[in-house]
Amino acid sequence: MRRWLGVFFVGGSIAYRGLFNWIRPATYIPTMLGAPLFQLIFFTKLGQYAHAENRDFYIVGNSIQACAMSSVYGMTMAVANERWFGTLGPLLASPANRSAVFLGRGVPVLANGLLVSAFSFVAGALILGFRPGVGAVVPLAVVVVVTVLSCTAFGMLLGSIGLRAKDFFFAANLAYFLMLLFCGVNIPLDTLPGWMSAVGRCLPLTHGIAAAREVAAGASLGDVLGLVATELGIAAAYAVAGLTLFRVLERESRRTAVLDAY
């Protein structure tokens, strides 16, 4: 168990430091903080111009979605970059427990996602006048943690695809932009066609954002327990799917000798 935990925490953090391309401040600040900040301003102003929803709708949606910058790209890099940097072979030749190797990479991604989301909320409060009320802060934090967790699990699935896919960044970029469209970040789900809102409900973020909006409007954590539980269920489903796919692709890559092939 101690070895499992060692691989989970220490291995995960070393892998993140080595494989996450945007970790240096010169890259991290413009990409992980600057881009979400301007995304928040852009969609809030667009919503204001379109006379669509109120300001808080966009601030909550985009501040939570900002975690996808970390979860989708960070997790994809933390798994798929092993192949890019030529370290996948040695990693898979090691006897380390695969679930510890795989899931441990999610811990720093999760922490980073929380930081990015928190930064966006603070920016929303300072620049755009977001005032959720003191009582809403703790429930909002709980909802954000659960949502970032499910987004990280989704990133794990994408990262696993990167073990075999030729152009994993294409998939990560596409997923990131589609989440903006399908997950109710800027468009209420009931405005979207039925099939799009149905897809959105199977993705991470959607239920978390809906819960966060209710909490920001004054609801208690108990009032949104169903949404939070659904988001948590989605997180578990994507984590299991990611780990399973990782194992399947590892086995297939060994069998067909395409581990480092592009």
Binding site: G47, L181, P188, L192
Partner: peptide, 16 residues
């Protein structure tokens, strides 16, 4: 195309 779709739905949701 994705951003255009988002903008279309946002304008549709609004009164402009």
């Amino acid at each position: 195309v994705i951003f255009a779709t988002i903008a279309f739905y946002m304008f549709r949701a609004g009164s402009r």
